[in-house]
């Protein structure tokens, strides 16, 4: 006599649930929009997002290109990983640099906030307009910053790329309303509900390639305005009295190298980084000079203007 097979109810773990939700979001975007693109910044969040995209559409490659809005000031290690990963994923890689910023030689040393505005904010808008993308995946997470905590997963931008936080569509269950007017675009944040710890645990569990800068190593650095900056190439102008010092550092977040602060650390493996992070006392965006200009509501203002 064959007894009917019985199965124990399996409750998905938090990472399995987050993964399934992100995959569901990506498939929804591909099904409902005309021309999606994935913004790829080469950081750890982008790495996870890309990995999830590959899972979502397997065995097909993700049916959209990667877009890197370049500032020409990223770490060299980032460019290397970007090119390698794009090749491995079988996806087209588009690199866009704002020609106006390139012509004027906009850089973080001489131009301050204008650097981010021209290269990143304007560059992103130009690239989206140029290619006519109507949906762009971004790797932002709600736990990163106060104003992100209220942003929807499907976040609409006007034809001029502005975000209106007071006029967001309610998002119920997993029913995403992707209908939009001509010229309107959507930023989609499939990893909204992931925390920094989730990201690291997932990278560890899935063995996802990341930029080596996340792991501690001896690197040439200077300390400036309370940040430890890495002298990544000879474009870094040393101020009077500054000398490049070798420190064992790693980065919790990656951006333009002259704007990204390192933390002193000996954690040279992923497990050690996670261990440090579990006892960390400084949240990740602190390493970014960009959030500090303009006081408490700085990120919210940048987002309204179209910064990712």
């Amino acid at each position: 006599m064959n007894a009917p097979a019985t199965f124990k109810t399996r409750t998905l773990t938090h990472l399995e649930q987050l993964e399934a939700e992100s995959i569901e979001i990506m498939r929804e975007v591909v099904a409902e929009t005309e021309k999606p693109v994935m913004l790829y910044s080469v950081g750890k969040d982008s790495a996870v997002m890309l990995h999830l995209a590959r899972k979502a559409f397997y065995p097909a490659p993700p049916p959209f290109p990667l877009l890197h809005v370049d500032t020409t000031w990223k770490f060299r290690d980032m460019y290397a990983l970007r090119d390698r990963v794009a090749e491995e994923s079988g996806m087209e890689l588009l690199v866009y640099r704002n020609p106006e910023a390139e012509r004027q030689g906009i850089n973080p040393f001489d131009h301050g906030a204008l650097h981010t505005d021209m290269w990143k904010t304007e560059g992103l808008k130009q690239a989206l307009d140029l290619y006519g993308f109507d949906a762009a995946f971004g790797g932002a997470r709600r736990d990163e910053e106060k104003s992100r905590a209220k942003e929807r997963i499907f976040s609409f931008r006007s034809a001029s790329h502005r975000w209106d936080p007071k006029n967001q569509r309610p998002e119920l269950w997993s029913l995403y309303n992707a209908r939009k007017a001509p010229k309107e675009t959507i930023r989609v944040f499939p990893i909204s509900n992931w925390t920094e710890l989730d990201i690291w645990q997932y990278i560890y569990a899935e063995n996802i390639p990341i930029v080596p800068l996340y792991l501690a190593a001896p690197r040439p650095t200077v300390e400036r305005d309370g940040l430890i900056l890495m002298v990544d190439d000879d474009r870094f102008p040393l101020r009077e009295g500054e000398v490049s010092v070798e420190r064992s550092v790693r980065f919790r977040t990656l951006g333009c190298y002259p704007l990204t602060g390192a933390v002193e650390s000996e954690a040279s493996t992923l497990a050690e980084v996670i261990q440090e992070m579990l006892v960390a006392t400084t949240s990740e965006r602190q390493g970014r000079a960009i959030d500090k200009d303009g006081g408490g509501a700085s990120m919210e203002r940048k987002k309204q203007e179209g910064y990712f």
Binding site: H14, R142, D143, K146, S147, A149, K150, P165, K166, Q168, P170, S192, N193, T195, L197, D198, G296, A297, E300, R301
Partner: peptide
């Protein structure tokens, strides 16, 4: 979160918060 609600001293929208213990996220 939002600047507007800091000024008004009220919460005006859905915000998502995250915390974790050893047992649950």
């Amino acid at each position: 979160g939002l600047a507007a609600e800091r000024e008004q001293g009220i919460t005006i929208d859905v915000a998502y918060r995250f915390f974790t213990t050893d047992k649950r996220k």
